[in-house]
Write a protein that binds this DNA or RNA. Sequence first.
DNA 1: GCCCAGGTATAAA
DNA 2: TTTATACATGGG
Length: 234
Amino acid sequence: MRGKYARIYENNGDVIIEGSNEEDFLNIWKDYFDLDNDYNEIRREISEVCPKLECALKSIDGIRILSQEPWEALCSFIISQNNNIPRIKGIVTRLCEEFGEKGEHGYSFPSAERIAHCTAEELAPLRAGFRASYISDAAKKISDGEVVLEDMYIMPVEECRAQLMKIKGVGPKVAECTLLYGLHRLDAFPIDVWMKKALSTLFSGIDSGNLGKYAGVAQQYIFHYSRLNPDFVK
DNA sequence: GCCCAGGTATAAA
DNA sequence: TTTATACATGGG
Protein backbone atom coordinates (compact mmCIF):
# COMPACT_ATOMS: atom_id res chain seq x y z
CA MET A 1 0.00 0.00 0.00
CA ARG A 2 1.51 3.31 -1.18
CA GLY A 3 4.96 1.74 -1.17
CA LYS A 4 4.66 0.55 2.43
CA TYR A 5 4.76 -2.99 3.68
CA ALA A 6 3.18 -4.44 6.80
CA ARG A 7 2.16 -7.87 8.00
CA ILE A 8 -1.37 -7.92 9.39
CA TYR A 9 -2.74 -10.64 11.61
CA GLU A 10 -5.11 -11.25 14.49
CA ASN A 11 -4.13 -12.35 17.96
CA ASN A 12 -6.61 -12.83 20.83
CA GLY A 13 -9.06 -10.42 19.26
CA ASP A 14 -6.42 -7.78 18.58
CA VAL A 15 -5.37 -6.84 15.06
CA ILE A 16 -1.59 -6.58 14.89
CA ILE A 17 0.07 -4.40 12.24
CA GLU A 18 3.63 -5.65 12.22
CA GLY A 19 6.60 -4.00 10.56
CA SER A 20 5.10 -0.52 10.66
CA ASN A 21 5.30 2.56 12.90
CA GLU A 22 3.00 5.18 14.37
CA GLU A 23 3.48 7.62 11.51
CA ASP A 24 2.49 5.06 8.87
CA PHE A 25 -0.36 3.86 11.02
CA LEU A 26 -1.83 7.37 11.20
CA ASN A 27 -1.13 8.26 7.57
CA ILE A 28 -1.84 4.96 5.85
CA TRP A 29 -3.23 1.99 7.76
CA LYS A 30 -5.88 3.92 9.68
CA ASP A 31 -7.39 4.99 6.37
CA TYR A 32 -6.74 1.66 4.65
CA PHE A 33 -8.81 -0.18 7.24
CA ASP A 34 -11.31 2.69 7.54
CA LEU A 35 -10.83 2.89 11.30
CA ASP A 36 -12.51 6.29 11.64
CA ASN A 37 -15.87 4.81 10.65
CA ASP A 38 -18.01 3.15 13.31
CA TYR A 39 -19.18 0.00 11.54
CA ASN A 40 -21.58 -0.98 14.32
CA GLU A 41 -23.32 2.32 13.72
CA ILE A 42 -23.27 1.75 9.95
CA ARG A 43 -24.76 -1.70 10.45
CA ARG A 44 -27.47 -0.23 12.64
CA GLU A 45 -28.33 2.31 9.95
CA ILE A 46 -28.53 -0.38 7.28
CA SER A 47 -30.86 -2.56 9.34
CA GLU A 48 -33.03 0.48 10.01
CA VAL A 49 -33.31 1.34 6.32
CA CYS A 50 -33.72 -2.31 5.30
CA PRO A 51 -34.81 -4.74 8.06
CA LYS A 52 -34.81 -7.60 5.55
CA LEU A 53 -31.02 -7.68 5.76
CA GLU A 54 -30.96 -8.59 9.45
CA CYS A 55 -29.83 -12.18 8.83
CA ALA A 56 -27.00 -11.08 6.55
CA LEU A 57 -25.89 -8.38 8.98
CA LYS A 58 -25.70 -10.94 11.77
CA SER A 59 -23.91 -13.55 9.67
CA ILE A 60 -20.46 -12.06 10.22
CA ASP A 61 -18.66 -9.52 12.35
CA GLY A 62 -15.78 -7.30 11.35
CA ILE A 63 -16.53 -6.59 7.70
CA ARG A 64 -14.97 -3.32 6.55
CA ILE A 65 -14.57 -1.61 3.21
CA LEU A 66 -10.86 -1.09 2.61
CA SER A 67 -9.46 2.06 1.03
CA GLN A 68 -7.36 0.52 -1.68
CA GLU A 69 -5.46 2.62 -4.18
CA PRO A 70 -7.70 3.80 -7.02
CA TRP A 71 -5.60 2.68 -9.98
CA GLU A 72 -4.74 -0.64 -8.37
CA ALA A 73 -8.43 -1.29 -7.68
CA LEU A 74 -9.50 -0.33 -11.20
CA CYS A 75 -6.86 -2.51 -12.82
CA SER A 76 -7.49 -5.46 -10.52
CA PHE A 77 -11.23 -5.44 -11.11
CA ILE A 78 -10.74 -5.23 -14.87
CA ILE A 79 -8.68 -8.40 -14.54
CA SER A 80 -11.37 -10.01 -12.36
CA GLN A 81 -14.08 -10.06 -15.04
CA ASN A 82 -15.26 -13.51 -16.15
CA ASN A 83 -12.34 -14.96 -14.21
CA ASN A 84 -11.74 -17.02 -11.09
CA ILE A 85 -9.95 -15.89 -7.97
CA PRO A 86 -6.79 -18.05 -8.17
CA ARG A 87 -6.19 -16.91 -11.75
CA ILE A 88 -6.89 -13.26 -10.87
CA LYS A 89 -4.24 -13.49 -8.16
CA GLY A 90 -1.78 -15.03 -10.59
CA ILE A 91 -2.24 -12.31 -13.19
CA VAL A 92 -1.90 -9.52 -10.60
CA THR A 93 1.21 -11.16 -9.15
CA ARG A 94 2.82 -11.40 -12.58
CA LEU A 95 1.83 -7.79 -13.31
CA CYS A 96 3.70 -6.64 -10.20
CA GLU A 97 6.72 -8.86 -10.79
CA GLU A 98 7.04 -7.81 -14.44
CA PHE A 99 6.43 -4.10 -14.14
CA GLY A 100 6.38 -3.10 -10.46
CA GLU A 101 9.28 -1.80 -8.39
CA LYS A 102 11.21 -4.33 -6.38
CA GLY A 103 11.34 -3.48 -2.70
CA GLU A 104 12.59 -5.10 0.47
CA HIS A 105 9.44 -7.18 0.89
CA GLY A 106 8.21 -7.70 -2.66
CA TYR A 107 7.01 -5.87 -5.73
CA SER A 108 4.81 -2.79 -5.86
CA PHE A 109 1.78 -2.48 -8.07
CA PRO A 110 2.99 -0.82 -11.30
CA SER A 111 1.82 2.69 -12.12
CA ALA A 112 -0.62 3.42 -14.93
CA GLU A 113 2.20 5.31 -16.68
CA ARG A 114 4.40 2.23 -16.66
CA ILE A 115 1.67 0.02 -18.13
CA ALA A 116 0.63 2.66 -20.65
CA HIS A 117 4.01 2.29 -22.34
CA CYS A 118 3.76 -1.49 -22.65
CA THR A 119 3.10 -3.16 -26.00
CA ALA A 120 0.73 -6.10 -26.40
CA GLU A 121 3.78 -8.37 -26.67
CA GLU A 122 5.11 -7.09 -23.35
CA LEU A 123 1.77 -7.74 -21.65
CA ALA A 124 1.47 -11.25 -23.10
CA PRO A 125 3.45 -12.97 -20.28
CA LEU A 126 0.70 -11.91 -17.84
CA ARG A 127 -1.59 -14.42 -19.62
CA ALA A 128 -4.49 -12.05 -19.00
CA GLY A 129 -6.26 -13.14 -22.17
CA PHE A 130 -8.73 -10.72 -23.71
CA ARG A 131 -8.35 -8.44 -20.67
CA ALA A 132 -4.86 -7.36 -21.76
CA SER A 133 -6.21 -4.75 -24.18
CA TYR A 134 -8.57 -3.49 -21.48
CA ILE A 135 -5.66 -3.04 -19.04
CA SER A 136 -3.81 -1.18 -21.75
CA ASP A 137 -6.70 1.15 -22.53
CA ALA A 138 -7.27 1.89 -18.84
CA ALA A 139 -3.59 2.66 -18.28
CA LYS A 140 -3.52 5.03 -21.25
CA LYS A 141 -6.67 6.92 -20.27
CA ILE A 142 -5.43 7.31 -16.70
CA SER A 143 -1.90 8.34 -17.56
CA ASP A 144 -2.90 10.89 -20.19
CA GLY A 145 -5.49 12.43 -17.88
CA GLU A 146 -8.59 11.55 -19.90
CA VAL A 147 -9.91 9.89 -16.75
CA VAL A 148 -8.82 11.34 -13.38
CA LEU A 149 -9.51 8.87 -10.60
CA GLU A 150 -8.57 11.22 -7.76
CA ASP A 151 -11.31 13.65 -8.78
CA MET A 152 -13.85 10.93 -8.05
CA TYR A 153 -13.54 11.20 -4.28
CA ILE A 154 -15.95 14.13 -4.41
CA MET A 155 -17.67 14.00 -7.83
CA PRO A 156 -21.33 13.05 -8.11
CA VAL A 157 -21.39 9.26 -8.27
CA GLU A 158 -23.29 9.23 -11.57
CA GLU A 159 -20.58 11.29 -13.21
CA CYS A 160 -17.89 8.98 -11.83
CA ARG A 161 -19.64 5.99 -13.40
CA ALA A 162 -19.83 7.70 -16.79
CA GLN A 163 -16.12 8.61 -16.65
CA LEU A 164 -15.01 5.13 -15.67
CA MET A 165 -17.12 3.44 -18.32
CA LYS A 166 -15.33 5.38 -21.05
CA ILE A 167 -12.57 2.82 -20.50
CA LYS A 168 -12.80 -0.31 -22.65
CA GLY A 169 -13.58 -3.32 -20.49
CA VAL A 170 -15.14 -1.23 -17.73
CA GLY A 171 -18.86 -1.83 -17.39
CA PRO A 172 -21.24 -1.21 -14.49
CA LYS A 173 -19.77 -3.84 -12.18
CA VAL A 174 -16.10 -2.89 -12.53
CA ALA A 175 -17.03 0.79 -12.25
CA GLU A 176 -18.91 0.20 -8.99
CA CYS A 177 -16.08 -1.90 -7.56
CA THR A 178 -13.56 0.80 -8.42
CA LEU A 179 -15.71 3.39 -6.70
CA LEU A 180 -16.38 1.28 -3.63
CA TYR A 181 -12.97 -0.27 -2.97
CA GLY A 182 -10.66 2.19 -4.73
CA LEU A 183 -12.34 5.51 -3.97
CA HIS A 184 -14.20 4.60 -0.81
CA ARG A 185 -17.55 5.65 -2.19
CA LEU A 186 -19.65 3.69 0.29
CA ASP A 187 -22.81 4.39 -1.71
CA ALA A 188 -21.50 2.44 -4.73
CA PHE A 189 -23.28 -0.91 -5.17
CA PRO A 190 -21.53 -3.55 -7.31
CA ILE A 191 -23.80 -6.28 -8.67
CA ASP A 192 -22.00 -9.44 -9.74
CA VAL A 193 -23.42 -12.90 -10.43
CA TRP A 194 -23.69 -13.68 -6.71
CA MET A 195 -25.44 -10.42 -5.91
CA LYS A 196 -27.80 -10.95 -8.83
CA LYS A 197 -28.78 -14.36 -7.48
CA ALA A 198 -29.14 -13.13 -3.90
CA LEU A 199 -31.24 -10.11 -4.92
CA SER A 200 -33.60 -12.26 -6.98
CA THR A 201 -34.14 -14.89 -4.27
CA LEU A 202 -33.49 -14.22 -0.58
CA PHE A 203 -33.48 -10.45 -0.78
CA SER A 204 -36.00 -9.74 -3.51
CA GLY A 205 -37.10 -6.14 -3.81
CA ILE A 206 -33.80 -4.75 -2.59
CA ASP A 207 -31.64 -2.52 -4.78
CA SER A 208 -29.22 0.35 -4.37
CA GLY A 209 -32.17 2.74 -4.35
CA ASN A 210 -33.53 1.60 -0.99
CA LEU A 211 -30.26 1.05 0.89
CA GLY A 212 -29.18 4.61 1.60
CA LYS A 213 -25.67 6.00 1.75
CA TYR A 214 -24.07 2.75 2.95
CA ALA A 215 -25.34 0.58 0.08
CA GLY A 216 -21.79 -0.60 -0.59
CA VAL A 217 -21.36 -1.91 2.95
CA ALA A 218 -24.73 -3.63 2.69
CA GLN A 219 -23.53 -5.19 -0.55
CA GLN A 220 -20.60 -6.79 1.29
CA TYR A 221 -22.96 -8.40 3.79
CA ILE A 222 -25.30 -9.66 1.07
CA PHE A 223 -22.38 -10.97 -0.94
CA HIS A 224 -20.84 -12.72 2.04
CA TYR A 225 -24.15 -14.22 3.07
CA SER A 226 -24.83 -15.59 -0.40
CA ARG A 227 -21.37 -17.20 -0.54
CA LEU A 228 -22.03 -18.73 2.88
CA ASN A 229 -25.29 -20.22 1.58
CA PRO A 230 -24.59 -20.99 -2.08
CA ASP A 231 -27.50 -23.45 -2.40
CA PHE A 232 -29.91 -20.97 -0.86
CA VAL A 233 -29.44 -18.31 -3.48
CA LYS A 234 -29.13 -20.64 -6.46
C1' DG B 1 -13.31 -32.88 -23.99
C1' DC B 2 -16.76 -29.89 -21.36
C1' DC B 3 -17.96 -26.40 -18.03
C1' DC B 4 -17.20 -22.54 -15.38
C1' DA B 5 -15.09 -18.23 -13.47
C1' DG B 6 -16.82 -11.41 -8.45
C1' DG B 7 -18.37 -9.15 -17.00
C1' DT B 8 -18.20 -6.61 -21.13
C1' DA B 9 -18.35 -5.49 -26.17
C1' DT B 10 -20.82 -6.29 -30.01
C1' DA B 11 -24.43 -7.79 -32.87
C1' DA B 12 -29.08 -8.92 -33.38
C1' DA B 13 -33.98 -9.08 -31.97
C1' DT C 1 -34.09 -1.26 -24.88
C1' DT C 2 -33.46 -5.90 -23.91
C1' DT C 3 -31.30 -10.46 -24.96
C1' DA C 4 -27.59 -13.66 -27.02
C1' DT C 5 -22.81 -14.87 -27.87
C1' DA C 6 -17.77 -14.64 -28.11
C1' DC C 7 -13.99 -13.80 -25.49
C1' DA C 8 -8.38 -16.05 -23.34
C1' DT C 9 -6.88 -18.89 -19.90
C1' DG C 10 -6.60 -22.59 -16.65
C1' DG C 11 -8.68 -25.60 -13.01
C1' DG C 12 -12.19 -29.10 -11.75
